[in-house]
Design a protein around this nucleic acid. Structure first.
Lengths: 259, 259
DNA sequence: TAGTGGTCTAGACCACTAG
DNA sequence: TAGTGGTCTAGACCACTAT
């Protein structure tokens, strides 16, 4: 396992080093949290320059397997306990009983949640939102933008968009604190009965500002969740778009085999 | 917009270059498919070394915004048409009428699907599968491993795990061609009625072998889907684990507000 | 053949962390 | 202060694409 130049087998040197380390990680030779050999050691061991050793470690960072801490070393990444997002978090019984969905769901799973309001305003609807709400792009909607934190780490950028008519009927959703049971409870109090939810999920890499806002380690994708809530007349009542750090969450859906 | 050294504002040079280009892309200055300035041009324009220009482009690649083609240039990435994965793809009426879920669902959306069998064997169950099936880790299960292709591009590595008892009762699932309506149809013919499905989704970066197998461009995460199918006695009948190229898919769930 | 991106070296200097 | 990773330069050479 020292130098062992070995056959090149088509791979570049930094890829061979990265693969070696990855296999070591998968084999449990480097358990989560362990420090990897320093860049100098890697370079000496594989008879390559420092730059190549660094490039090998960069590959592993981008795969989400390793984190590096300047001045300290490179370490096998520990996966944070994934929070589970199941359909039951929307249960009527919960918010009708006054639970705040976010905080209650987190504490059920042994985490502490908090929320930072980023904006609370009337603003033009982005194209995707306008199309779902069936209004013309750029028409005004009421917007709540917040960042949620789990155990102190920001984990999602969440924006809710409400048609102005809804914001009129349930004015409390325009305030920072929507009261017991949150927005869903206020909307139903206004005489609008909620009926169904549609969730659409995509995964992608974060942009630079998202990386900063969510303090994402390299090699961490985001899940973009678009949730639409419909009332009993099948009219959309809220569009909710969240950009969620993917290393902190599992989505969970349970449904009967459809006819 | 030429050199304009400007204030350093804390960002490194390659990050400033990357941000400049990203903003250009977002503003539509570089539409999808457009070639970006060459590395030499970027280096000259920003008065930096070639290595830094390359690093800037590497950042954009990792964000999934740009692809580079050796010998040709760097280009703004075009997002492939996302396939939609909705719950209706599991409709009983479809597979009872003999549709092959994969191919039928793809063609409904204007794509062509194909399948490569990678393995068809009795093998020890991975820990995650064993835990779902309620058997001891390493106990034997029947496994179907396949790679599916959409429009010629590999898009998922899909492994199905069946308890041996199920494979006994519905022996056709041990063959390459499971016949009209696929595995679900064979299992119901064996007198086991399917009742519900649970899907769990996570997103992460691909490992090197996955990158190769799925021919993933840099900056493309994968979605790991774990699907369990239960019968009317609520016993698990199949565990299906797929690693899916995230740039080709949207998941879509639609459900009533739970009580 | 000219032009593009990819890999690698050798070394300077910076930024951060820990003892 | 010693040791770690991070940024950057300058340049050699390779691999691939288009013409």
């Amino acid at each position: 396992m020292t130098a062992g130049t070995g056959p090149t087998d088509g791979r570049t040197m930094h890829m061979r080093i990265a693969d070696d380390i990855r296999i070591g990680i998968e084999a449990g030779e480097y358990p989560p949290g362990t420090q990897l050999p320093t860049l100098d050691e890697l370079a000496a061991r594989h008879l390559c320059s420092l730059a190549v050793a660094r490039q090998a470690v960069a590959v592993l960072r981008q795969q989400g397997l390793v984190i590096t801490r300047q001045g300290t070393g490179s370490f096998v990444r520990e996966r944070p306990t994934a929070r589970r997002h199941g359909m039951s978090r929307y249960s009527r019984s919960r918010w009708q009983s006054g639970e705040a969905v976010l905080i209650a769901e987190a504490s059920r799973q042994g985490h502490e949640a908090a929320q930072l309001m980023r904006a609370l305003e009337e603003a033009p609807a982005p194209a995707a939102v306008a199309s779902i709400l069936g209004i013309s792009p750029g028409a005004l909607v009421w917007v709540r933008r917040r960042t949620t934190l789990i155990d102190g780490r920001p984990n999602q950028l969440a924006d809710s968009y409400y048609p102005l008519a809804i914001a009129e009927k349930a004015p409390r959703i325009r305030e920072e604190n929507t009261g017991p049971g949150g927005g869903f409870a206020r909307i139903e109090e206004a005489g609008i009965t909620l009926a169904r939810i549609r969730e659409q999920l995509q995964a992608r890499m974060p942009t630079s500002p998202e990386t900063v806002a969510l303090k994402l380690p390299e090699g961490t994708p985001v899940i973009e969740l678009t949730r639409t809530t419909f009332d009993t007349a099948d009219a959309p009542v809220e569009v909710f778009i969240a950009v969620i750090a993917a290393d902190m969450v599992t989505f969970d859906y349970d449904f009967p085999i459809p006819d």
